[in-house]
Each structure stands twice: as C-alpha cells, then as structure tokens.
Design a protein around this nucleic acid. Structure first.
Lengths: 133, 133
DNA sequence: GTAAATACCGTACCATACTACGGAGTCAAG
DNA sequence: CTTGACTCCGTAGTATGGTACGGTATTTAC
C-alpha cells in the first residue's frame, strides 16, 4: 500500500496529478481507512504508469480513459483507436513538413538577400500590395 | 476606414478576436471619434492579415509580436527567429515520426494477433511484470 | 419614430493537463 | 509535547488563443 505521496513519487508525478486523475476518474478512488487518508494498492501505480506511457504515445487523457475501458474487451476496438491516432499523427507530420519547407525557403531567401533595407521574411508575411505600418 | 465588424469580416476573424488582439497589443488602439466607436485604417487590416499568415507558419502570438517589432529593424534578427522556429518544427517532426513508428508497430502486432484474450497494444502499455486491474 | 443592427465595456468561459493555495486536521520524531 | 511533515478538501490559477455574455448606448434603415 502507498500513501498518495509515495504513489506520486513512484510514478514520478505530482501529488496533485494523482488527485486530478481521481477527479477525472482515470484511477479508482482508493480505500480511505481510519482518518480518511488514501491508501493505494499496487494496481494504482500500474495504472498511473500506464497513463504516462500512453500519454507519451500521444494519447489524450480522454482517449486513455477509452483505452482503459476497451482494455477489458476487444483487441479490435483498441486497434481502431490506435489506427485513428496514427491517421492524426500522420496528418500532423504532413502539416509540419510543409511548414518546414516554407520556413526553410524563407531562411534561405534571407541568406541571399543583398538589400539591407528589406527582409524577405517580413515581405512574405505582409499581404501583397500592402505595407506594414 | 473600417468599423470593427467590417475589419473582422475583411480579415475573416471574429469581432472578439480583434478586441483580443488590441488587448494583447498586437494591433494599435484605433482612433475613437465622436461616440467612441473604433475606426480602423487600412494598415490595421494589413496587420491582422499579417498575424494570420504568421500564425499559419506556426508562430505564436508572442513571437508575432516580436516579429512585428523586428520588422522595422534588422533582417538578420528576423532570420534568427525563423531559424529557431525551424529547429523547433524539425524537432517536433522527429518526435511525431517516432510516435508514428510506435503506433504502426502496435497496429501491425494487433493484426497478427491470434490470441483473442489479449491485445498487444494494451500489453505494451502495461508496465512489465504488472497487471492492469 | 421606432426597431433592428451594431457598438461599447468588463468579465467569464472554452479546452487541456495540470499546479498551487489556504486552512484545517493528523501523524511521526525527538 | 511540540514541531514539522504529510494529508485532507474545494477552489483558483497557469498557458494559449480566442469566444461568449450581459447590460447599455448609439446608429442605421424603414
């Protein structure tokens, strides 16, 4: 059994994070014997570590909640959730790459800029036919 | 001259967004003649469009503020800001790709899973030697 | 001249994932 | 037996970029 601070330390999170997860129903309310202090079983540590690993994979807390629900059931549903997340991640990568391309072009246009009075980056941001006050 | 709603419409943003930018000092407080209604010059529309373009490039409002300040000055400083942003974008792409790889592996391990009682994704999330309650 | 549209302002709310605070109670060490 | 550490709870604050609301004033259209 762990006290809340022992649990927090073991999972490498803040005590308040544990209380937050409890409010969000991500972890079960622990038994509170005697003077009402939380006593956590080993499984809660497992659960918190699970949450942190899933977060690291890019799942939101809401998705992790679903993941936990599904974990008791079908592997197919879990797989669908992961596939959906994969789609989102891939779309995001695509966006970031086009962003990267634009930024690279801007930076290199600055490098070949010989006019000290203007900046190609700023120029590119100012809508055409306009002047930034 | 634009009223606030005309400006908002022209820039394709919400009226409240204009008021928000004013609070954030991203746009100048406009003249308010007579009964105190905002009257915006053309430059403010240019400025709002500038902000939206820069946002689309991944700059935060705080960075855009810096960008506007720098726009009057050196191209080199603007370039440094863009390079810094490029670094961040590239690091994010790297993270997302490793995320993509993990998710792909998980999904494919589900596809080749013949044991209906277990799910490789869930198993991978549960820390080793543990059992999810 | 009246009604609808637009404007003003300050403040509160949205999502996300925490983190901090205050006041009170309790537990452990010396 | 006191001091400090830990716990309890509800609520508020953090960051980001807005969006919404309520009450009032003014402007525009008919």
């Amino acid at each position: 059994m762990y006290t809340i601070s022992q649990l927090a330390k073991s999972a490498n999170v803040n005590v308040e994070t544990i209380r937050y997860y409890e409010r969000q129903k991500l972890i079960n309310q622990p038994i509170k014997p005697l003077q009402g202090y939380r006593q956590y079983p080993e499984e809660t540590l497992t659960r918190v570590l699970f949450i942190k690993r899933a977060q690291h994979l890019g799942f939101t807390l809401a998705e992790i909640d679903t993941l936990i629900e599904l974990s008791a059931g079908s592997c197919h549903e879990v797989q669908h959730l992961a596939e959906h997340k994969l789609d989102i991640v891939q779309a995001k990568i695509k966006d970031m790459k086009s962003l990267e391309k634009s930024l690279k072009e801007l930076v290199s246009s600055c490098q070949s800029n010989s006019n000290p009075a203007s900046c190609p980056i700023i120029d590119s941001l100012v809508p055409s036919g306009r002047r930034l006050s």
